[in-house]
């Protein structure tokens, strides 16, 4: 089985991605992660204004058989939350890198991105 690993973003070993445009970052989980979890039924996310810290938990994703903590690849303040996931958690399965995004952050330190895995590195990890 092969999984999508778009090269326009960075990755954490724990299968979260971060994509940055103009100082704001979107977070989500990877294609590999959604496949491992199976059908996602619930996503618990922080509220706008919450501060996230790189490497620490920011939410929970639940499938019918497992629960996984979500770890933030970067530090920052939440400026947007994907409200569509409340009614359509299946977006995480259907489009993990697009409509299945989870939160939007204003980054504290773009330098943190250098510590993350590139698409190639992450692709090797899940190969």
């Amino acid at each position: 089985m092969s999984f999508d690993v778009p090269d326009d973003r960075k990755y954490l070993e724990s299968h979260e991605w971060v994509a940055v445009t103009d100082g704001t970052a979107k977070l989500g989980i990877t294609d590999f992660a959604q496949d491992e979890l199976g059908d996602v039924v619930f996503v618990e996310l922080p509220g706008e204004g919450d501060d996230l810290t790189a490497g620490e938990e920011f939410g929970v994703v639940e499938s019918i058989k497992a629960v996984s903590d979500l770890y933030s690849p970067v530090s920052g303040t939440v400026v947007g939350v994907n409200d569509a996931l409340a009614d359509q958690p299946e977006l995480v399965n259907e489009d993990p890198f697009g409509d299945g995004w989870m939160v939007e952050l204003e980054l504290d330190d773009e330098g943190e991105l250098d510590d993350l895995l590139s698409a190639d590195e992450y692709g090797d990890q899940i190969a």
Binding site: F42, E62, S63, I64, A66, V67
Partner: peptide, 12 residues
């Protein structure tokens, strides 16, 4: 919603 229960979520 068995993910709330001990056999999946254990100490949480």
């Amino acid at each position: 919603l068995q993910t709330r229960e001990q056999h999946i979520r254990r100490e949480r």
